[in-house]
Design a protein around this nucleic acid. Sequence first.
DNA 1: CTGGGGATTCGA
DNA 2: CGAATCCCCAGG
Length: 212
Amino acid sequence: MYDVTDLAHLLAGPVVPAAHGLLGCRLSAGGVTVRVTEVEAYAGTAGDPASHAYRGRTPRNSVMFGPSGYAYVYFTYGMHWCMNVVTGPEGEASAVLLRAGEIVAGLDVARSRRPAVRRDVDLARGPARLCSALGLDGSAYGVHLLGAGPVRLTAPPAPVDPATVSAGPRVGVTGAHDRPWRFWITGDPTVSAYRRHVPKPARTAGASGVRP
DNA sequence: CTGGGGATTCGA
DNA sequence: CGAATCCCCAGG
């Protein structure tokens, strides 16, 4: 057995085990509960250029530098929110991005938030979709996740078998392919599609893309 | 102050 | 494939 105390302990530790442990956890907000099926680990300032905290503390990423168990929610592409769980000790800005989940409660509420979606497995398939399904936005920035607040994270009813977890390079991240820090439940239909990061081509006249 | 770019999604 | 559409942050 593995209760909220253990979850708190797990989140307080190194980010990669924390990311593993977040698979299967339940996240409840806005009348919807998802079972987390896909995550990515980010190591903060510790030599991880892909982390939002890599260049040091800013107003936007400050919650990542605090204690574990809090929500780092950020706005991107002018329209989408994405949600992270802060991990590690205070002062170390590591976090785990929640990339996808399966709706296990509040299905009708989730559908009403995303009317255009046809298949239920697509409702929270992707980090911005997950936030959308749960009704999460900037108001969830910095909230504690392990208590009785509006956004609650709880351990899985049964531990996830490590043999059912796959690992690979993170989505939308340039380089760092030597760090397979994306983790997902193998074969789960709610896991998002992997898309290689495509750097913007240099803006020179007549430039043609170079293909590998 | 300015401007480049983004841990994405959807539709053509 | 490209638009949508803000906000953040580095640099001058």
